[in-house]
């Protein structure tokens, strides 16, 4: 168990800067999720912590020890890869035991540790199988098992659930969270899926173009996004952005963001919109409208409410407290 500290970490590939200086303090036993769209540098950041990429400048510390020049195996970390990276010719047992064998752990202890991990992950009956004889979820578990048996100080996850189908993803998400709680190991988890980020994280890091836009508890980030990007990326359906020019006297900032659940269709509203179509999801209904200037706006309302017909003109209203204004650079004002 250990803390992880990143100090002004930068990465360039040749002349291209990928990470423009990230600072992060991870407490012992904390579950941190790095989330962002593809190409934002989140995987590169994780791989720098793992030691699979060199750090161009800045400092990476694990457990208070500077590890910039330390090989991955000596960093006291374990990593779970997106495609699991299981050794195809080895049995599940050998896959999990390989790192321990290299570390010259005594045979009886290897067997103990693998047995414990297998029990924890319900893999006991599969220990003699090869990876190709397992389902996606089981392979995922083996990859986790391989990480667990090493008893690392830090778990690193690189989009571990993206190769699973939706149902399994939800199940594994819960398992990962439970496992991390049980083991109390510091975890750094990369994903592009904001639902995973919201549900797993103690704190999340929203990355955008090589910069950490915002670091905070999931609900704080959701309720109080620091930038237009974060407001748009976190939350589903995404935040609506309106041109303040349409709403004279409201603010001098050019952009107004309102989450779909904060919009109401009322008789007397601040904005007129035309209904494009409505998606009834059972418990709730998403109503997609178009406002003057052509922007698309989504209203999320309870299923009990009346659903307006397509082409109908409606009035939209919101509380002042729910309005988020952003300046021309996308910063919150």
């Amino acid at each position: 168990m250990a803390t992880v500290t990143l100090r002004n970490v930068r990465k360039s590939f040749g002349k291209t800067d990928v990470i423009h200086g990230v600072d992060l303090e991870i407490a012992d036993g904390e579950f941190i999720v790095i989330v962002g769209p593809s190409g934002c540098g989140k995987s590169t950041l994780l791989r720098m912590v793992a030691g699979l990429e060199t750090v161009t400048s800045g400092e990476v510390e694990i457990g208070g020890r500077l590890v910039n020049k330390v090989e991955p195996m000596d960093r006291d970390i374990a990593m779970v890869f997106q495609n699991y990276a299981l050794y195809p010719h080895m049995t599940v047992f050998d896959n999990m035991a390989y790192g321990l064998k290299i570390a010259k752990v005594p045979k009886s202890e290897i067997e103990d540790r693998v047995a414990t991990a297998a029990k924890l992950l319900q893999l006991e009956e599969y220990l003699k199988r090869r990876p190709r004889e397992l389902s996606g979820g089981q392979r995922q578990r083996v990859a986790m098992g391989r990480a667990i048996v090493r008893k690392p100080a830090v778990f690193l996850f690189d989009e571990p659930l993206s190769n699973l189908d939706a149902k399994l993803r939800v199940q594994m998400r819960l398992e990962i969270k439970a496992l991390q709680r049980e083991l109390g190991v510091t975890a750094l988890y990369v994903t592009h899926d904001q639902v995973e980020a919201m549900t797993l994280a103690d704190r999340m890091v929203v990355m955008n173009g090589g910069v950490a836009d915002q670091v905070g508890k999931p609900l704080d980030v959701y309720a109080d996004p620091r930038t237009e990007f974060v407001a748009g990326f976190i939350g589903s359906p995404p935040t609506n952005f309106l041109d303040t020019a349409l709403l004279p006297g409201l603010s001098t900032a050019p952009s107004l963001g309102i989450r779909p659940e904060h919009l109401q269709i009322e008789d007397q509203g601040r904005l007129t919109a035309t209904v494009s179509f409505a998606e009834a999801l059972g418990a709730e209904t998403l109503i997609h409208c178009r406002v003057a200037g052509g922007r698309q706006v989504t209203v999320r309302q309870d299923a009990l409410h009346h659903i307006p017909a397509e082409g109908e003109s409606v009035q939209l209203n919101w509380a002042d407290a729910d309005a988020m204004f952003f300046d021309a650079n996308g910063r919150r004002v």
Partner: peptide, 24 residues
């Protein structure tokens, strides 16, 4: 990722070659 996983597991290049690449 296989080479990287081996690196995280602590396998030096020749170890990776003999234990993983050769059997594959």
């Amino acid at each position: 990722e296989l080479a990287e996983a081996a690196r995280v597991d602590g396998a030096k290049p020749m170890r990776f070659f003999i234990d993983i690449l050769l059997p594959m």
